[in-house]
Simulated scan of single mutants.
Amino acid sequence: MTPIVRLQAIACALPQINIDTDQVFPARYMKEARRPPSGYAPYLFHDLRRGSDGELREDFPLNAPINQGVGIIAAGRNFGSGSSREGAVYALVDAGVRCVLAPSYGDIFAANAVNNGLLPARVDEHDMEVLFTLLAPGGVRMNLDLQACNLTVERRSFDFTVDPVWRTRLLNGWDEIDMTRRHAEDIAAWCRHDRELRPWAQLPFEPAAA
């Protein structure tokens, strides 16, 4: 995964609360067993972005020309609730979104986000209201520093929180296996000691090198 240390991007406000995974990525577009090469970006917020006639809605913020290329989404509480659909995260990432700001998240969505290099940053609800106002004109750029857990927009500064383990993973672009590999020397030392202590418990062959 691509590490996130500092992020400079257009931020778009979606002030609704309880945006669930079906709103982020409707289930009917998961027709293929595998993620298509073209990605899921065209289906991101599909039913919110389009009217019953299929045409893009002018009143939906992500459709505004000034918000094209958005990299950060600021949303209301309980973002990504509902099903465990990882396709919701795929759609965000495929569209170029690297961070979502919200007061709270669906637990499974937040874990899926980190697994795919997407930062689920928690921002105080009062600060989110201020951010919604600052981002309302559209096309507003935000600077985010994951090392300091701080973001700035329109010369205003805000703190956010993220699970410390998730923060480490995102700063380094690590998945869960990488988190284990960073302890490789300690694991190897334990294995050597265990072979000396319990030779009778060892396999009769050496595992193949990775």
Results as ranks from 00 to 15, higher is better:
F60V: 10
R34S: 14
V70Y: 08
R49N: 12
P36R: 14
G51C: 13
S38M: 09
Y29I: 09
R35A: 07
G39P: 07
P36V: 07
N63S: 09
Q68R: 14
Y29L: 05
G54W: 11
D53T: 12
N63L: 03
A75I: 01
E55K: 13
S38E: 15
N67L: 04
R35H: 13
A41Q: 02
R34I: 00
G54I: 04
L62E: 11
F60K: 10
R35K: 14
H46T: 03
R35W: 04
A75P: 11
L62Y: 03
A74D: 09
P42R: 00
E58I: 14
P61V: 00
S52V: 07
N63G: 06
P42A: 04
R49H: 12
I72C: 04
Q68D: 07
D59C: 00
P36F: 00
A64D: 04
A33V: 15
I66G: 10
L48Q: 13
S52N: 03
E55D: 12
I72V: 15
P42F: 10
L48I: 12
E55C: 10
G76T: 03
A75G: 02
I66K: 07
S52F: 05
A75L: 04
A74S: 05
H46N: 11
N67G: 00
P37A: 14
R34P: 04
K31T: 15
P65Q: 07
G51T: 00
G76V: 00
R57W: 06
R35D: 00
P61Y: 07
E58T: 15
R34Y: 04
R35F: 08
N67I: 08
E58N: 13
S38C: 09
R28Q: 12
L44H: 09
G69H: 02
P65C: 04
D47E: 13
D59W: 09
Y40P: 02
Y29H: 14
L48F: 05
I73Y: 00
L48W: 03
R28K: 13
G39Q: 10
P37H: 12
E32W: 10
M30S: 12
R35I: 08
V70A: 15
P61H: 13
P61D: 03
E58M: 11
N67K: 02
G39D: 10
I73H: 00
G51P: 12
E32I: 00
P42N: 11
F60A: 13
D47F: 05
D53N: 06
E58P: 05
R77I: 04
P37R: 12
D59V: 10
R50A: 06
Y40N: 11
R34Q: 15
P65S: 09
P37Q: 06
I72E: 01
S38V: 12
L56M: 06
V70P: 01
P42G: 07
Y29C: 10
S52M: 01
Y29M: 03
R50D: 02
R35E: 09
R34W: 06
P36S: 01
Y43V: 01
I72A: 06
F60P: 02
L56H: 11
G76N: 08
Y29A: 01
D59H: 11
Y40C: 07
N63Q: 09
